[in-house]
């Protein structure tokens, strides 16, 4: 899961990058409205965590601009202003959720999972497809009821593939889900992660379409 954080406090944004990373997300951090606009224009994110009081303006303006151009990226507002009127204003401006500072890291991770799950049209916390069940809260998967431990990267690849099981994801699509801007991408890492994943959940579960990418193998008809 790729998340953009717009937050200008260095300690907090570092904490979010590491902390949400521990919960399986890939984080990109910007510290101003202008950089936020640029990031959203350049990349697609599964969720946006937005501070309201930014040095060059209000996060609400960024949110309004986002919604006015039809961007449906789920947004969680993270701010020190958490009186009821502030929360109402934020939610009415197009935010999906609201969390006041200081917050619980686990709760933030859960809320981000919830809004991104809703965005992919799913209500159940686990994603299930063709015998594979994904538990984003625990970063685990189960095949035919048998629990399997996954590394963070492996989980990210599987989560991306299971988000929309029918669609094919290219190697670069998967790389985008796995790595933030500052991270070095090795040339064959996606192949390596897919290979390890197959050895854990079964070779047949992931299908390779040569020259195009990967997808979950459709349920045999």
């Amino acid at each position: 899961m790729r998340i953009l954080v717009v937050e200008d406090d260095p300690v907090l944004s570092d904490g979010l990058k590491i902390g949400l990373g521990l919960y399986g997300a890939t984080l990109d951090i910007v510290s101003s409205c202008a950089d936020g606009h640029a990031a959203l224009a350049a990349d697609a994110f599964d969720a946006l965590v937005l501070d309201l009081m930014l040095p060059d303006g209000s996060g609400l303006d960024l949110l309004a601009a986002l919604r006015s151009r039809g961007d449906r990226t789920p947004v969680l507002l993270l701010t020190a202003l958490d009186e009821v009127p502030d929360r109402v204003r934020g939610l009415d401006a197009g935010a999906d959720d609201y969390l006041g500072k200081p917050f619980d890291l686990e709760e933030l991770a859960a809320r981000v999972r919830a809004i991104s799950r809703r965005n992919s049209g799913r209500a159940a916390p686990q994603a299930t497809y063709n015998g594979v069940t994904l538990n984003p809260a625990r970063l685990t998967a189960a095949v035919n009821g048998e629990c399997i431990g996954l590394s963070r990267r492996e989980f990210a690849v599987l989560a991306a593939l299971m988000d929309r099981p029918g669609t094919v994801l290219s190697k670069s699509d998967l790389e985008a889900k796995l790595y933030g801007w500052q991270e070095e991408v090795e040339s064959n890492t996606v192949e390596v992660h897919v290979h390890k994943l197959r050895s854990k959940i079964g070779r047949a579960k992931i299908e390779t379409l040569r020259g195009i990418g990967y997808r979950m193998r459709p349920i045999a008809s």
Partner: peptide, 25 residues
């Protein structure tokens, strides 16, 4: 009030987040 809340609560949020990371990492 808004500025004060932001300036006072943001460092606390950072502290709490980092402390939780230290606990679970």
């Amino acid at each position: 009030t808004a500025f004060a809340a932001h300036e006072l609560r943001t460092p606390l949020a950072g502290l709490r987040t980092q402390a939780q990371i230290a606990m679970v990492a």
